[in-house]
């Protein structure tokens, strides 16, 4: 069976018949590793994150990296043109990607990107929102839920103040932004299911 990992993080998403599944998987791993490292560096700069236990830091990052990357790369999804630009710089049409097996997940990613982009967040707002997404006490396996919860609450307060400051006339903007979090969870679950279908036996 051909393996096509049509992920925006993948530098070589096309079918490569001469490569073994193991080699395809290793190439993919090399493609997304720098992005994961950037997420870890970002987390280290969240005030209070490094004070959490190492296990809780790892748990938050394992659970939230996809969501952070989804927020960060929402701009790669061009809703108007119905295209996705991969980190390699190559642009693929929605139809081409669907042909590679990216069905429902891709539609939901486009839907999310459109809604997030419509909020026209500043870089600062986007960064703080991403921190709120990452520091979520309800991730499975958190040991010190209270510490993570307190940190997330302080980040949410800061985000609320920032969003209110940049647009005092639109009180719903902050609420709309927080409502993107359950959308991200849904996407994360769909992405996990997709990944499991590619598992190496």
């Amino acid at each position: 069976k051909d393996i096509v990992l049509a992920c925006p993080m993948n530098m070589c998403p096309q079918d490569e018949p001469n490569k073994t599944p193991q080699e395809i998987w290793e190439d993919f791993s090399l493609s997304f590793t720098p992005a994961v490292r950037e997420v870890v560096e970002f987390a280290k700069h969240i005030p209070g994150f490094s004070a959490l236990s190492e296990n809780d830091q790892v748990t938050l990052l394992k659970a939230g990296t996809f969501e952070v990357l989804m927020v960060r790369f929402a701009s790669l999804f061009n809703v108007k043109e119905q295209t996705v630009t991969f980190i390699s710089g190559a642009t693929y049409s929605l139809e081409a990607l669907k042909g590679m097996g990216m069905g429902g997940l891709l539609d939901t990613m486009f839907e999310f990107s459109e809604k997030l982009n419509s909020l026209e967040l500043t870089a600062e707002e986007l960064g703080l929102f991403t921190a709120v997404v990452l520091v979520s006490a309800d991730r499975s396996g958190i040991e010190n839920i209270n510490s993570v919860d307190l940190l997330q609450e302080s980040l949410i307060r800061a985000l609320r103040a920032l969003v209110s400051k940049s647009d005092p006339c639109d009180a719903s903007r902050f609420t709309k932004l927080l409502l993107k979090m359950p959308d991200l969870r849904t996407l994360n679950n769909m992405h996990s299911e997709k990944l499991l279908s590619f598992r190496i036996d």
């Binding site: 791993s29 997304f32 590793t33 994961v36 490292r37 870890v40 560096e41 280290k44 190492e54 830091q57 790892v58 990052l61 394992k62 659970a63 990296t65 992405h191 996990s192 990944l195 499991l196 590619f198 598992r199 190496i200």
Partner: peptide
């Protein structure tokens, strides 16, 4: 692999990055 993060080797990458593993950095 029962969870996708393990499937990707994500935990290993994260732990190394958290520790500031210099061996894997370009410089």
């Amino acid at each position: 692999f029962s969870d996708p993060a393990s499937n990707l080797g994500l935990e290993d990458i994260i732990r190394k990055a958290l520790m500031g593993n210099l061996e894997e950095r370009p410089e």
